[in-house]
């Protein structure tokens, strides 16, 4: 069993104009594309959506990883297409719905690929989410690579003792994973006790008002990004309203 697919969860520290945007501004960009995708089921406007997203992806220098995420959900997109095509014999509609799904994933993938979990946690915190929750979120991400490594070690150890993972029927295969799951969970619980102990020893919860080393600050470019996103969405809504008239039949 290879755990390399989990690597996709790991944010890579990079620098680009998009990386430097405030996470909240980037979230609004993703939301505006979400809103846009919700407006249309037609193929052409959805492709326009991709065309608008693509320069941002290039500006962020994450094209390859972005494509990899999209490839990852392709099976799901095909499934959406197939089901819709079976239910309603409208081919264009089925293609549109599948495309819409991919556009959504593409927009949020750009968000997660360019926002460090730390910044995301900070943004949540500054938006009023309780610190306990944002801390749980960032700490969970911090331990993803640790748990992956541990899982790999356990897999190797159990294999060297003769465990065969890819053998037998479905039920047997699920049972095969037990000798890996149990030590992994036990290890994680033991680790969480250690963590709690260390947190207590570093003044966890001692002050009513917690302060922070970093503060996110919205700058001109962030406001501009939000403004443009809003304008883009409003424009799309306007076009959509018009398109219901026979004025712009090509959009239908």
């Amino acid at each position: 069993m290879s755990l390399s697919f989990l690597e996709g969860l790991q944010f890579r520290r990079m620098d680009s104009p998009i990386h430097r945007l405030d996470p909240r501004a980037k979230f609004v960009i993703a939301l505006s594309i979400l809103g846009y995708a919700m407006l249309f089921t037609e193929v052409i406007p959805l492709i326009v959506g991709f065309a608008i997203l693509l320069p941002l992806v290039f500006a962020a220098k994450v094209f390859r990883m972005w494509v990899r995420t999209i490839k990852g959900v392709l099976v799901l997109a095909i499934l959406i297409f197939a089901i819709n095509w079976l239910v309603t014999p409208d081919l264009a509609m089925a293609v549109g719905l599948a495309l819409r799904f991919v556009l959504l994933v593409a927009a949020f993938s750009l968000f997660f690929l360019t926002t460090s979990p730390d910044d995301l946690g900070l943004a949540l915190e500054q938006s009023g989410v309780p610190y306990e929750l944002t801390f749980a979120f960032t700490t969970a991400i911090r331990f993803v690579p640790v748990l992956c490594r541990e899982a790999q070690t356990i897999v190797d150890a159990q294999r060297s003792r003769g465990l065969e993972l890819e053998r037998g029927g479905l039920l047997k295969r699920i049972r095969n994973y037990l000798p890996i799951l149990v030590p992994l969970v036990v290890g994680a619980i033991r680790r969480s006790v250690d963590l709690a102990e260390a947190m207590e020893s570093r003044a966890w919860g001692v002050s009513e008002k917690r302060t922070s080393l970093y503060r996110l600050k919205m700058r001109g470019r962030d406001y501009l990004a939000i403004l443009l996103s809003a304008a883009f969405f409003l424009l799309a809504m306007y076009v959509k309203l018009l398109s219901n008239q026979p004025l712009l039949p090509w959009l239908l």
Binding site: S116, P117, T139, V146, L195, S201, R202, A203, S207
Partner: peptide, 30 residues
Amino acid sequence: LVFQNPENQLFCLSVEKDVAFGLENMGLPE
């Protein structure tokens, strides 16, 4: 208190943030 296992006393995503962790909890000014 510095513990035996260093891995389980670092909770944050960067060293800097970890070093700041206790101070943030104490509510010190930035």
